[in-house]
Amino acid sequence: MPPPSADHPLAIRARMLAAIREFFHDRDFLEVETPVRVTTPVLEPHIRAVPAGGGWLRTSPELHMKRLLAEGWPRLVQIGPCFRAGETGPLHHPEFTMLEWYRAGAGLDEIERDLRELLPFVAVRATGRNVIRRGEGETDLTAPWAKLEVAEAFRRWAGWDPLAAWDEDRFDLDLVGKVEPALPRDRPVALTGYPPQRAAFARTAPGPPPRAERFELYLDGVEVANAYDELTDRTEHEQRYAEWAAQRQAAGDEVHPLDDAFLACLGRLPRCAGIALGVDRLAMLLCGAESLDPVLAFRERPPEV
């Protein structure tokens, strides 16, 4: 680690966090802290929770955030730790910091507008400039976004359309092997219109073909944030939970019980949109780093459970 100074990655990260809080405070968002230890974690496939004292460490704060939206809060923001077992790599750490914000009565356009304003604001506060400089090129955070449909991106760079014929393994392999490396890097990129099998908690538009109302933000080829036009329908939630439970069972992953408190709030959950942004990854990009290492004060590797 370099000696303490204003250019130190931890100093850049600290200014970034302060700027994020200021940004949402100025827009009248309520900052909340929801439970870090939860009784039942999110059931999505491929996400493994860390057990903690009879419960689990949260893999995401989203279900509690939506319960607060159902209580009538219009704008919510949270910055806090999340945990996912087994995820260690240059862009992964089993303990990471998530920024989530939600708007009631809004859709993806409003979330996108927040993000367009947030990125340069935070970058200038943290680094004095509104670009990401990493390796050869430069990502201009004020440039018009490149918006790409998943179907179009896959047809162009992987030669097939996952919305026409779903193949999970091929989708994942081609996403990391062919599509992500080909994404433009000079400006922010939003990949949108996901196959319904990857809708997660996003509502799906009927189509044809049906597509999930979700976008992923990429900066300099790195996935940074994931936004949903939130699914609010209880029956569809229950259908997805049943599918996820079957997938988890097949993969040998723990099948957690349903979150009844969350399901119960769905009758009162208004139309809303929300986004989860990887704080460590954004800090890494603003520091021009290739891995999370410099922006984590300590990269500890406790034994895997």
Binding site: E44, P45, H46, G86, E87, T88, G89, P90, L91, H92, E168, D169, F171, D172, L173, L175, V176, G177, E180, R198, A200, E216, E223, N226
Partner: peptide
């Protein structure tokens, strides 16, 4: 080798 895991996707090793 690198651990990769796209959002909502499975863990992979590139």
């Amino acid at each position: 080798f690198n651990f990769v895991k796209p959002g909502k996707g499975q863990a992979m090793y590139k």
